Simulated assay, not measured.
Amino acid sequence: MTGASSLPYRRNVGAVIFNGDGLVFVARRTDMPGAGGGPDEGVWQCPQGGIDSDEAPDHAVFREVSEETGITSLTLLGEHPDWLTYDLPAELVGKALRGRYRGQTQKWYALRFTGTENEIRLDADSYQEFDAWKWVTLKTLATLNVGFKKPVYEKLVQAFAQFA
């Protein structure tokens, strides 16, 4: 990772969204290899996104979820006590995240979805990040193809087990 250590981490928020049955919302990325393939192919993740310079993380998470999924019927269940950090793989440094970051440091929140599924719209924003979604058990979250973010998801499974 030549030069990567000189790059900063991007501040980011993430949302583990639980439905009334304790299942977790995941969506398939449109920009990763395998996206658009079979029903279980591609890279799956929970909604996440950047924090605007004048924005508090607990506000950013609701904005990001709304932009990426159309979901607005949410209540806050809790938050991970720590900022969780991951590094990009060497082949993505200088390319992903507009080439300006070596990875992300994330504040994660547990949210409860209180709406109906017809509220979920992956095309709610002009830039569509996801092309499919599904509900999964929390314990299987880290076993999905979440790519290089797997260590973060393993921590989330443990930290948010009480909400499943």
Rank of each mutant, 00 (worst) to 15 (best):
48 Q>N: 13
32 M>T: 13
88 L>A: 05
45 Q>N: 10
108 W>C: 06
162 Q>T: 11
145 N>F: 06
81 P>C: 05
46 C>F: 06
101 Y>P: 06
127 Y>C: 02
87 D>F: 07
19 N>P: 00
133 W>E: 02
156 L>T: 04
160 F>G: 07
153 Y>D: 03
54 D>K: 10
20 G>M: 04
77 L>A: 02
54 D>Y: 12
43 V>F: 10
82 D>E: 13
5 S>Y: 12
46 C>L: 06
104 Q>M: 15
94 G>I: 04
6 S>C: 03
124 A>C: 03
47 P>G: 06
58 D>P: 01
1 M>K: 13
2 T>D: 15
110 A>M: 03
5 S>A: 15
4 A>R: 12
114 T>M: 00
39 P>C: 03
106 Q>N: 15
35 A>S: 15
38 G>I: 00
125 D>I: 00
157 V>T: 09
161 A>T: 07
163 F>N: 08
69 T>R: 06
151 P>K: 13
14 G>F: 03
90 A>N: 15
63 R>L: 03
43 V>W: 09
91 E>L: 10
99 G>M: 12
12 N>E: 14
75 T>P: 01
140 T>I: 10
13 V>K: 02
150 K>R: 15
7 L>Q: 09
109 Y>G: 03
12 N>M: 14
83 W>Q: 14
155 K>E: 15
2 T>Q: 15
100 R>H: 14
98 R>M: 14
4 A>I: 09
40 D>K: 07
163 F>I: 07
92 L>C: 04
100 R>E: 15
56 A>Y: 07
35 A>N: 11
78 G>P: 06
108 W>D: 07
97 L>R: 07
134 K>T: 05
39 P>E: 11
74 L>R: 00
107 K>H: 12
85 T>A: 15
118 N>V: 00
71 I>F: 00
111 L>W: 02
74 L>F: 00
78 G>Q: 02
30 T>N: 13
61 V>D: 01
135 W>H: 02
89 P>H: 03
162 Q>E: 12
164 A>E: 09
67 E>L: 08
39 P>G: 07
